[in-house]
């Protein structure tokens, strides 16, 4: 992760805080598309509402959001479309309710994927985070529900976390609108390429699998040099995912 040097003021999110305009459902002519992904019940819809000014229904139970909601905001004269995805625990299974989220991250090609995680259940949430980081290299970790983590006496070293994951980490408490300006600032910096992510790639896999993945991924890159997630496609091919094989044949996802 590299951040271009700037004056201290410019990098402060509050410097630009007045540049935010919540645009509600007006999602025409956007400059960037931002996806909101994460485990169920981590507060994705609450973050969505805080960013867009909309009042998407929220509730304290996993699975509340079943449809894909879209909204928009403007920040420093650039327009962002925000897509609130249903919560998923993983992108590896084939269950139907995960499909909306999976397909959007894979094929919707969001400019930035904001991964919302529950700070007090970080380890479990990382399962999805690490999968998403195999797919996209433009992501922001929104470490949400920080208020609950604090109440549970859980301390998180966000710098270490960011270094491991290779993406910026922003602690928030979206219910209380805390950390939202910082989140917006970070999203815009990733979208504009001011922050370059070096996402973590899954390491702890047996040698023979790693070799197979590298071999395949190399072949895929030869065919589609512009593709960013050849490793993920290699994973899916080894899994025997018919859908991916079909798409590879038609070349639609490129």
């Amino acid at each position: 992760m590299e951040v271009k040097a700037k004056s201290a003021c410019e990098t402060c999110s509050h410097f630009n805080a007045e540049g935010l305009k919540r645009l509600g459902v007006n999602t025409t002519e956007v400059d960037f598309v931002v996806a909101l992904a994460g485990n169920p019940n981590t507060g994705k819809s609450t973050v969505f509402n805080a960013l867009t000014g909309l009042r998407q229904h929220t509730g304290n139970w996993p699975g509340k959001t079943v449809t894909r909601a879209e909204g928009a905001f403007e920040y420093n004269k650039e327009k962002y479309k925000l897509v609130d995805l249903p919560g998923t625990y993983s992108l590896l299974s084939t269950s139907e309710d995960e499909e909306v989220a999976r397909n959007f991250i894979l094929f919707g090609k969001p400019d930035v994927t904001v991964i919302v995680v529950d700070a007090s259940r970080l380890e479990r949430n990382l399962n999805l985070v690490l999968q998403i980081l195999e797919i996209t290299d433009r992501a922001v970790l929104c470490l949400n529900l920080m208020d609950e983590a604090e109440r549970n006496h859980i301390e998180i070293d966000t710098r270490t976390l960011a270094r491991y994951l290779g993406i910026p980490v922003v602690p928030t408490s979206a219910r209380y609108d805390k950390g939202i300006p910082e989140l917006i600032q970070t999203i815009s910096e990733v979208a504009n390429g001011k922050i370059i992510c070096k996402p973590h790639r899954i390491k702890n896999i047996p040698k023979n699998i790693e070799n197979a993945v590298q071999k395949l991924s190399l072949e895929i890159k030869k065919e589609y040099p512009e593709i960013a997630n050849s490793r993920w496609i290699a994973f899916r091919l080894l899994e025997g995912d018919e859908h991916i094989i079909e798409l590879l044949r038609t070349g639609e996802f490129v």
């Binding site: 380890e123 399962n127 999968q131 859980i154 491991y164 047996p206």
Partner: peptide
Amino acid sequence: NLAEGIYADAAEIVKDSVHKTD
């Protein structure tokens, strides 16, 4: 193997970045 690999990675990351005091 893949799932285990992901969990192992997650455990490593959490070990270094999360501290539970109580």
